[in-house]
């Protein structure tokens, strides 16, 4: 190796954009975590004020205190062979968002982007007029520098009104998530005899299931229950 190459390597070792990125993401994660804790602390003040008034209600719910699922809402549509159990999640039990720096997400708007839908058609609300497509890559291990393992695909349908549908899918793996929670006490839904679990958290629905050889992980924001069912029926048919 020449002196020039040695100096170049020393500069790259010191001014390393990968390190810069990792430190930025680390700061972002810590900031997000802090914001969430502040929000939770803010809301935790409310029960102190209301404890006398709703003491009885709190007692009734005490047995369920360790469960993530608050309640389950049943929906049956015999015509379309749909039985849905919407499992509502306790906002205090959802894990912190984890922005995983071990994943590299690449924008890919190639016309050959593989679609998981049977006939290539899916029922998306018309006002979701933006479509972005991504590919997730993983590293073999934490020491590896290259993100060369194909993880999953993702299509995000969205608009400027903060409505979105994220469809992640992969034939090989369960798609990567940036959140976690306990599924204890959740109930299963069926659509055209395919079993799936549907969860609701504030204005977000999410579900995962296997169909047509694909592992799906779908998350919607500010989408109605009807729009969610139409979407799932168009995929599982």
């Amino acid at each position: 190796m020449t002196n020039k190459e040695k100096l170049k390597r020393a500069i790259e070792h010191d001014i390393n954009l990968r390190d810069y990125y990792n430190k930025i993401i680390d700061k972002i994660e810590k900031g997000e975590e802090r914001n969430m804790k502040i929000n939770m602390r803010k809301w935790s003040l409310v029960p102190i004020c209301l404890v006398v008034v709703i003491g009885g209600v709190l007692f009734l719910n005490y047995r369920n205190d360790n469960k993530t699922i608050l309640k389950t809402k049943l929906y049956i549509d015999e015509t379309n062979n749909v039985t849905l159990n919407i499992n509502e999640i306790d906002s205090n039990k959802v894990g912190m968002p984890k922005l995983d720096a071990n994943v590299k997400v690449v924008t890919n708007n190639d016309v050959n982007f593989p679609l998981p839908y049977k006939n290539g058609v899916v029922n998306i609300p018309k006002d979701l007029d933006k479509t972005n497509m991504y590919i997730f890559y993983f590293r073999e291990n934490k020491e590896s520098k290259d993100y060369n393992i194909l993880g999953n695909y993702e299509i995000i349908y969205s608009n400027d009104k903060n409505q979105s549908i994220n469809v992640k899918y992969s034939k090989e793996h369960k798609p990567a998530r940036d959140y976690y929670f306990s599924e204890e006490g959740s109930k299963t839904s069926t659509i055209n005899d395919v079993e799936l679990k549907i969860y609701k958290f504030e204005s977000i629905y999410f579900t995962e299931f296997k169909f047509n050889d694909y592992n799906f992980d779908i998350e919607t924001t500010n989408i109605t229950e009807k729009e969610l069912i139409d979407l799932l029926l168009s995929i599982i048919r």
């Binding site: 001014i15 924008t107 940036d178 998350e219």
Partner: peptide, 26 residues
């Protein structure tokens, strides 16, 4: 969850800008 979309945008912007920004700052 809500920040995921922004993280994609952020990563995309970072990928497209970090070399030029580093040069500018240096």
């Amino acid at each position: 969850m809500a920040s995921q979309l922004n993280l994609y945008k952020f990563n995309e912007i970072y990928d497209n800008t970090h070399f030029d920004l580093l040069k500018y700052v240096i």
